[in-house]
Computed example of a mutant assay.
Amino acid sequence: MVRVRFLGHAAFEIAGSKKILIDPFLTGNPKAAAKPEELDADLILVTHAHGDHIGDAVAIAQRTGAKIVAIYDIANYLVENNEGITTIGMNYGPTEVDGVKIVQVPAWHSSSDGKYSIGNPCGYIVEMDGVKIYHAGDTFVFSDMALFNELYGPIDVALLPIGGHFTMGPKEAAKAVELLKPRKVVPMHYGTFPPIEKDPEEFKRLVGEKAEVVILNPGDVLEL
């Protein structure tokens, strides 16, 4: 069994034979379901360099010894500016880390430390214990999402942003579901701050019968 715990915003904990954190933005996150010191991890996946996604990745890695997986430029940036961490830099494509299959896929967004651009944004398709999970990162919908299902599907659950303003809104995310064809979909990256206030029930209505929409509150767990 693989357990997917929503930690708020775009942060998730995926627990199976390994424990994986994705975009662990907890400090400063008004919807955070855990504190950084409460979490353990083997791997930390970072989708891009914005502070609400890198979040507490370095602090957790320094404390736990978790490896940080990120696009090559971000991985280098992190290891050069922080002591006591191990990073795995990659680029769009597949790899395997400690028995976990990871595909880094494109995302349409930006990536910076707030001043300078760092690397490209990405999403991840993670396969662990026979379960495939797609975390889109911050992105707009794009037609190549159909390739993710064709090459790496079927996707058991897709974690998709619906907040608009910085990412897809409900309409665009529903189109992404049509392209990805996941069995289940969990909306994320909404309701954390005023610009991304959206109703997940609108997203659920737009998806209709294309997939099972599972709306998680911060702290809720989806078992797969």
Rank of each mutant, 00 (worst) to 15 (best):
E197N: 14
F140Q: 11
E212F: 05
W108A: 14
V126E: 09
F193G: 00
M128W: 02
A33S: 13
G153S: 11
K175D: 10
S111G: 09
K132R: 15
K115Q: 14
E202P: 01
H53L: 14
N149T: 09
Y72V: 03
D52L: 02
G16Y: 04
V185S: 02
G137A: 12
L7I: 07
E209W: 02
R3W: 00
V126F: 09
D113Q: 09
P182I: 06
T27H: 01
F193E: 12
E197L: 14
H48D: 15
Y72W: 13
V141S: 12
L151E: 13
V103S: 01
V214H: 07
R3F: 03
A136Y: 01
S111R: 06
T167Y: 07
V4S: 07
I155W: 07
G55V: 09
V46H: 03
S17W: 00
H189Q: 06
L151N: 13
Y72S: 14
A10R: 13
V157D: 12
V221N: 00
L7P: 04
D138A: 15
A33C: 11
M168Q: 14
P30V: 03
A211F: 08
A32D: 09
M1V: 11
N29I: 08
E37G: 15
T27S: 15
D56H: 10
R3H: 12
N149F: 12
A66V: 07
D98R: 07
F203G: 10
P170L: 03
L224K: 06
L160P: 05
